[in-house]
Each structure stands twice: as C-alpha cells, then as structure tokens.
Design a protein around this nucleic acid. Structure first.
Length: 547
RNA sequence: GCGCCAGUAGCUCAGUUGGAUAGAGCAACAGCCUUCUAAGCUGUGGGUCGGGGGUUCGAUUCCCUCCUGGCGCACCA
C-alpha cells in the first residue's frame, strides 16, 4: 500500500469515527501551492453538511484523531476554510523512486483495460488525394489515443477505413480519365465535383505509361483501380514518414463485395425500423434521437454513405471489439447520431454509446502570415509530408497533440520552423538529453542505478521534492489522459516536468558530489529519464540521448 | 432557425471527479556561462476566467439564459 493510500485510508477512518458514513471516501490532492503541504484533503468541508458542523471544527477533530506517521507524514495541520494539509517526512516520497526505476518502460502502465480488445479508427481518408494537415492532426491524435489505451491495459487495433467506393471515387476516376484524355490531346473536361490537383495529372501520366493500350482512358474501371492504388500508396508513404502504423486497413468496397451492406439492409428491415417513401428506403433514425429520418437506399438504387458505415460498425462489433473509438474531424459530427441510431435499430444488443467518438476541430495552416486555403478540388494543399519535411516529425507530432482536440488548431508553418529552437518539444527532449549527459560524462552505467541503499532524505530541496512529486504523479496522469482520451494532458505534463528538470539541473550537480548525495541524485535522474521517455513514447516522439 | 465545439494575461493555450492567492509558453523588461549541454536558468510586470442569473460552505469547472466565433444541418462523404 502506498503512502498515499495509507493517508487516504487514515483520513477516512478518522472521519468515520466522527460519524461519517462507513463508505466515506476521502479525497486527496496535490495542493497547487507547496506552502499548503505535500498532500491536502477537503474532507472537513465535504463532511460539514452530513455532520452539521463547521468545517474548521471537524478539521481539528480529524487532526487530533489521525495517526499518519506510518504513512510518512511529518506534520498534519488545519488550514482555513477547512483543509487538512500534510507535510511528508524528508525522503518519504523520494523513497518510491526505486519503484519507478524497477518498473522502467512499464512505469505508468496499468491493467485497467484487462486486455480487452479495443478498436481505434483514425485517418480513414478517402483515397482521393494525399494526406493533408487535418489528417496529420488525426494521425497524431489517433496514434496517441491508441498508445494511451495500450498503456492502460487494452489490446488495441489501429484501423484505417478506406472509403474506396461511392461517388467520391467515381469522381476521382473521371478526373484522372479527363487528364488522360488531355494527355492524348483532347480538351480538358474535369467533371462537376472532380479533382483538380496536380497529383491527378501525375497519376494520369503514370496510368498511360502502365497501360499503353489505353491512352484515352477508355477503361474507366481500370483507371479507377489504378488511381485508388496509386493514392493508397501515396498515403502509405505519408503515414510512414509520420511513423504511424496501422494493424488493419478495412476497405469499404469489401462490405459490398461480401454482401454485408445488403445483409445490413435486410436486418434493418427485419427489425422493422425502415419505411419506403418517394422511391427511397428510409431508416427511422428519429426513434433513436436523430432530428429527422435518413435515406438508406436512394431512389436510384444506390446506398447513401451512412449504410455502409453501419455495416462497417457491425463488423467491428462482430470482430470482438466491444469498445470502438472513432477519431474524426468535427465536421463529421452529424454522422455520430446516425451511425449509432443505425446500430440501435438492428436490435442486436450493441450499447447506445457505441462507437465512441473523439472529434477534433479543424486545422488552419498559416504561411507567410496568411491562411492557406485547403481545397482538394482546387488543388491548394499542405500535405503531412510537406510539414514533416519542414519542421520534423517530432515537432509536428507535438504541435498536433499539445492542444485538446476540441480546440481549433492554427499551424503556422514558418513559425514552427523559425521558432524551432524554442519549440516546446525540443525543451522536453533537451531535458532528457541533459540527464543522459550526466551518465555519459560520468561514465556511469545507468543499469547499476537502482536506488538500493540510497538515503532518500538527501533529496530534500524544494526543487527535488517538486520533481519527485511530478514523477510519482505520472501513473495517475496516464490514467486520466487515457480515460478522457486526451493526449494533450501528456504533452502538458511533459512540459511541466521538463521545466522542473531544467530548474533542478541548473541548481544541483551530481558528478563530483559526495557519494551519498551523488547516489541519491543519480537515482532521481534515472527515474526522471524513465518518466520522460515513457511520456514521449506515448506521444510518438523520440527521446534523444544527446542533441 | 436547430445541433455540436469554443470564448481564460498583449499572442497561443493549460487548468486532472467543484477547492485555498487562476497557471505555462511566447512576446516585453532586468540579470546569469572556469564546474554534468546557455536548445538552459533566475527575477519583474501583466486577468471583470465573454455578460447575466442559479445550485453550493466554495464555481474557470455544474445548470439556465444571452452575446461572439468555428463547424455541421443532402436521396455528398
């Protein structure tokens, strides 16, 4: 039992003695201001109502009854308006650094998910163009959310859904065909809703080279397949450059090929939630919270996008993913209610909140102080690879993750480049590299630093105590970030912790100090390295040993 | 008009199940390199947490309402 748990239990025990309900759970927190001690509890205020007494009176009674020396508490005192503040004995908290080191790469990981399968779907770009910055944000976010779930005990599958069927792909095929014909000397006629990007011209050229027998693009199906394959390959290269790996690529077309779309329609009809109107087949999504009913099968006999979406999520459920998280742009939020409604209408026992959605706001790209309008159709573009080439993979990852997903993100390309020296990601990496330097310069084998025999009371400066507290708070941070699917909390934590490291590093030396101090500080350094490395790993950012 | 998201320091943003004097980075100003990386450190100034109600011992946090901005409201995805 950790000191924290012992302290919490002791407070609860004393509270029950004073008449609190037997199941009273004491809340402990790290006070923002160190002058309020190392731990604080609001128990007296929480108990004021049920005990019908003043918080301060309760607080004094609690302190009188508390026996917390065993938990490492040096001093327990009352602070208005009714807090209990605890100051820990010297070294009481630092004594746990050995656990951090022993856990190593596993430090911060929990078994909360119990190995249950979880599916994280992200990027899922149509194969109609290269990945742009919006996809970049989603790639960084989805990968980090997946990593957070893995760190908390889920068996994660990273999945990419290719919308390789439907109207957009037809437009793509026609656009490439138009460029092929242009190459053959015919006038350019890109269809309504077609794609104008330069990359379409490249694909057309490659197509003609690969199919000299079809210089006019007469075989539209062949053009389509060629274009989709080419763009999938491009997107793979983008993802590779970004260091994102998927376990499953799921093709929308396979849902049609395998009859899953038809099957879903039949199931919905059998469940009795459909009706026909104006020559179309509708789903009564209003039964499940939608504001209007939705067309499933258009009057021309083809399906709307939402039906394969439902069929696709049925496969997720049947593949054993009873937890599914979809990372999507907020501009798709209208699909949430619809997909869930479709799954509910199947009456197959899928929970109402399935799948979960992590929606992120848009990315605006600034270049030269002006917004770059992103339009696939107009061909105005900033690709993920452009960004990585200019700013570097680590910085791109960090910038995409440093804000909560609900906030819009402005990515000023030139700013990210010009400020690279003051970039927060370098600040964090520098903290890691500096600490590595201590082992390197001192010619100390980090593996020999385990904390054994160390006098932790020597780590008693304010800087050291703050750093120790931050390191010990890492597992709780990971748990919180995973539960709320919020990698930005990790980014923010790392920045704070790196600051503590730099401050400490500046004030305290390790090498050349008397042996007991040197040993204690080396232990602190190694524990800090473990945390920085694990945190950066979660975000998909490297932890360089020297810079 | 309806729905979702946001509004916190000059700028960009954090703020963990409601807690104490609301934080960080950048920018501004003043300092610090003979010692493990100055890509660093120390200090100073900077706020009507969009407005107004409500719940609470206590609200940036929860509820209501209004204002502003973004996104979405297809037999497109």
């Amino acid at each position: 039992m950790s000191a924290e748990d012992m302290l919490r239990a002791a407070v609860a025990r004393a509270a029950v003695d004073l008449g609190a309900p037997a199941d009273f759970a004491a809340h402990l927190e790290r006070p923002r201001d160190p002058s309020f001690g190392d731990w604080a509890s609001n128990a007296p205020m929480a108990l004021a109502k049920v005990l019908r007494r003043k918080p301060l009176d309760i607080a004094h009674d609690l302190v009188a009854r508390l026996d917390v020396a065993a938990a490492g508490v040096r001093e327990a005192y009352v602070a208005p308006p009714g807090f209990l503040n605890f100051r820990m004995a010297a070294g009481a908290e630092a004594a746990r650094l050995g656990e951090v080191i022993a856990a190593g790469a596993a430090y911060g990981r929990t078994g909360e998910g119990q190995g249950a399968p979880a599916n994280v779907e992200f990027v899922s770009a149509n194969p109609t163009g290269p990945l742009h910055v919006g996809h970049g944000r989603q790639a960084a976010l989805g990968d980090a959310v997946a990593a957070l779930l893995e760190a908390t005990g889920w068996k994660v599958t990273r999945e990419f859904y290719y919308n390789d069927a439907g109207v957009q792909i037809a437009n793509l095929a026609l656009s490439v065909q138009a460029r092929v014909r242009e190459l053959a000397g015919q006038p350019l006629e890109i269809p309504e809703g077609g794609y104008h990007g330069e990359y379409i011209r490249d694909i057309a050229r490659d197509y003609v080279a690969a199919h000299p027998d079809d210089t006019h693009g007469a075989n539209l199906e062949q053009v389509r397949m060629f274009a989709v394959a080419a763009l999938r390959h491009e997107q793979d290269l983008d993802l590779q450059a970004f260091g994102v790996k998927f376990d499953v690529y799921y093709l929308e077309s396979s849902l049609y090929d395998e009859g899953k779309v038809d099957e879903t329609v039949a199931m919905l009809q059998a469940a009795g939630h459909t009706f026909e109107k104006d020559g179309a087949l509708w789903l009564r999504t209003t039964d499940y919270g939608d504001d209007k009913d939705r067309v499933m099968r258009k009057s021309d006999g083809t399906y709307t996008y939402f039906l394969p979406d439902v069929a696709y999520h049925v496969t997720k459920w049947r593949r054993g993913f009873h937890r599914a998280i979809n990372v999507q742009g907020a501009d798709h939020h209208s699909t949430v209610t619809r997909v869930r409604a479709g799954l509910q209408a199947l009456d197959m026992g899928i929970p109402a909140g399935y799948p979960e959605y992590e929606l992120h706001q848009m990315v605006t790209v600034m270049r030269g102080g002006e917004e770059v309008k992103i339009s696939k159709r107009a061909g105005s573009y900033v690709t993920v690879r452009d960004l990585i080439d200019e700013v570097g993979r680590d910085a791109v990852r960090y910038f995409f993750l440093m804000r909560k997903s609900e906030s819009p993100l402005v990515f000023d390309v030139e700013l990210a480049r010009s400020q690279s020296e003051e970039n927060p990601v370098y600040y964090i990496q520098m903290a890691h590299a500096r600490l590595c330097g201590i082992f390197r310069v001192g010619e100390v084998d980090a593996g020999t630093v385990t904390g054994a025999g160390v006098d932790y009371a020597l780590l008693n400066s304010d800087d050291e105590r703050e750093l120790v507290k931050a390191l010990l708070g890492y597992p709780a941070l990971v748990t919180t970030a995973a539960r709320s699917r919020a990698p930005h909390l990790v980014a923010s934590y790392l920045l704070d912790t790196a600051r503590l490291v730099h401050t400490w590093y500046h004030k305290h030396h390790v090498l050349g100090e008397p042996e007991p101090i040197r040993a204690a500080r080396l232990t602190l350094v190694r524990a800090a390295l473990v945390v920085l490395r694990n945190g950066l790993e979660l975000l998909g950012i490297t932890a360089p040993e020297r810079m």
